[in-house]
Amino acid sequence: MSTVCLINPPGHDWANALACRWCASTRSAGEAIVSGLSSRRGGDENSARALLDAHRAEVLAADGQAYVGELAMLSGLVATLTAVVEHGDLDDVRKLLAEHRADDAQARAEASGAPAPVAPWSMGLTAADRQTALLDAIRRDPDGRWKSGRARDVLRALGWPVGKGAAGSDLSRLADAGHLVRHEKPNARWYSLALPGGAS
């Protein structure tokens, strides 16, 4: 929006509209709302902007988006995943989903004003680092059976975008390294923390 009206030097004459009556300048609906509210008796621009932000949040909540552009981001992800899946490379799909989770977390944090969580894979951490994080979590909560679903949930809470397959593989590698004990029955496999002296 131009701040100077070339035809009417005292300023634009909006007349509560989005276009100036004198020139070709236009303004957004948000600018019109802020201008209208701040020009009222007792109004100021900061209060008007705060009201506009509150209204924007209500509109976003009503249409199911957590932030502006969420649906467009998801639409782009679906289109990209469709193309990748046709070539059958599951690692690329996992990478795209991980990138989407990071982008989504960043956008949600920006929309809420909170800092975005740092994703472990964005710091160059490896599968071995993920297994170490899982082992630390198991040591903090050693009771019960550790199955792939429980491991997946813990890893996701720590920021690792893994499925049950990767989580189950991590449990198996930790057992192979002697940190966990593998228990098997027909149609069931779980793990427990290996205690000193070989007990579990």
Rank of each mutant, 00 (worst) to 15 (best):
G11P: 09
L171W: 02
A66N: 08
G88P: 02
Q106R: 13
V85C: 06
L158F: 04
Q131D: 15
G198T: 13
L71E: 07
H12K: 12
E184D: 15
W14G: 02
G11V: 12
T3F: 11
L18W: 01
A98I: 04
I7Q: 10
A98Y: 01
V78G: 00
D13K: 09
P120W: 00
R40W: 12
H12C: 11
S2W: 05
G11M: 13
L193D: 03
T3Q: 14
A66R: 15
L158K: 07
L180Y: 02
H55I: 08
G168C: 12
A111H: 04
A199M: 12
A137K: 06
A24Q: 13
S75V: 01
R101K: 05
A114R: 10
W146F: 05
R145Q: 14
R152Y: 06
V181Y: 06
L155S: 00
A111Y: 05
P120I: 02
A166W: 05
D92L: 15
R40T: 11
L37S: 04
S75L: 02
M73N: 04
D92K: 12
D89I: 04
A128D: 14
H87M: 07
L195Q: 15
S200G: 13
A114H: 13
D153L: 11
Y67H: 03
R108F: 03
A128Y: 10
A107Y: 00
S169D: 14
A79Q: 14
C23V: 05
A48S: 01
G178D: 09
A157C: 05
R27C: 11
P120E: 03
I7T: 15
A114C: 09
W121A: 15
A98M: 06
G168W: 06
A50F: 03
S112L: 11
A19Q: 15
A151L: 05
G43S: 04
T126I: 07
V34S: 04
A105F: 00
G30Y: 07
E70I: 08
A175Y: 01
T82C: 12
R49M: 07
D129M: 03
T82A: 13
S122F: 05
D141W: 10
T82F: 07
R145F: 01
R40I: 08
W121M: 13
E70Y: 05
A61L: 08
N16A: 15
T126M: 06
G144F: 05
W22C: 08
P10L: 14
D44A: 12
S38D: 04
R145A: 11
E86H: 11
D176Q: 14
G197K: 07
D89H: 12
V78A: 13
A50S: 11
L71G: 06
E58R: 15
